[in-house]
Design a protein around this nucleic acid. Structure first.
Lengths: 190, 190
DNA sequence: GTCTATATTTGGATAGAC
DNA sequence: GTCTATCCAAATATAGAC
């Protein structure tokens, strides 16, 4: 993410992301962001109207990146269960590949800025999942609970396992397989 | 929680909790906390050495309250699967009964203060869960994945579903039953 | 576009009267 | 124990030279 088309702007975005991920929102002052980006504090305001705008931009960028990475791996021919498992693993890997971005996202969502953002990105994540669920419910392999509940059973473990990776726990491929299988079972008709 | 043995102190603790839950960590300034508690700003420092100490105290109190509430409902005679489900529902209800405390906890854990707290409370949550898992693995009903992975599959949906309750989604008893059953299935041997 | 310097506000914390 | 008044540091944002 954050390609170098507009170098200073991208440096500021990545500096803010890194600061928040490593030291929390409190640490991401305009002075600290500018210093980490290697520019003067005043320069920040040539690229963003405010600090909040900068942080919201960071969040939108990273959501977009993760989504693009995940949408690639789809396989529409497979069974609902296989597709579910594959998508779970793909989403996990997408976040894991930029763990600082993941941590930023977690913190952003617990900040007051989250309300200003709106949550438009969320729907793009939900839609493909809803399609898999629908197909599985029709086939009788998935239980017929509300979509938002099923989505929570799917996404929550990703978030929790990644949080532990930020704290030093590294999940092996076999462990992730096991977790993905667990998530698939949690969706199964009783 | 926050009984009225030391009224001013408890008012400050609850004021801080409410402010963080409703408006985020940024909003919980010493001025705002004191005003919400109905005392002067200087008074805060008669009861706590610093603002951080106050917030850490809030967190420790709420963890302790939730744990006490949950430990009551244990039933050692039941099957591992039944105990797991019962404990999941009990933990959900314990947090739900003070949803502001839950939100505070989420935000606290994403703040730099989390590192200072240490996470001692976590072990008290894990231990009973580990016992249930052990028994189920021996009986061959649960799959044999690492304890921390199993714990994540268990706790993560609680956190996610509660977060949605803070945003207005109210889960019915039937939906929670369904979610709990899903969690139990996620633990089952493949 | 970027820098230096600075205006302005707000935050955490303390002093001292009551 | 509580309040009023205040100090000091830090944070956001702007002005103006280069």
């Amino acid at each position: 993410m954050l390609t170098a088309i507009r170098p200073t702007r991208e440096k500021l975005l990545r500096a803010a992301l890194t600061l928040v991920a490593r030291s929390g929102f409190e640490a991401a002052t305009t002075a600290a962001i500018a210093e980490a980006a290697g520019v003067a504090e005043g320069t920040l305001y040539r690229h963003f109207a405010s600090k909040d705008d900068l942080l919201i931009e960071v969040y939108r960028n990273l959501k977009s990146e993760v989504l693009t990475a995940v949408e690639d791996g789809e396989d529409r021919a497979a069974s609902p269960e296989a597709r579910l498992k594959r998508w779970w693993l793909a989403l996990f890997e997408a976040y894991r590949s930029d763990i600082e971005a993941f941590t930023f996202g977690q913190r952003f969502m617990e900040s007051p800025l989250a309300q200003r953002e709106g949550g438009a990105a969320k729907q793009r994540f939900i839609a493909p999942l809803a399609a898999i669920r629908e197909e599985g419910v029709r086939a009788g392999v998935f239980c017929d609970l509300p979509q938002d509940l099923m989505a929570s059973l799917f996404i929550a473990p990703i978030s929790y396992l990644l949080k532990q990776e930020t704290q030093g726990r590294r999940w092996s491929a076999a462990e992730l397989e096991g977790a993905a299988d667990g998530v698939v079972r949690s969706w199964r008709a009783g």
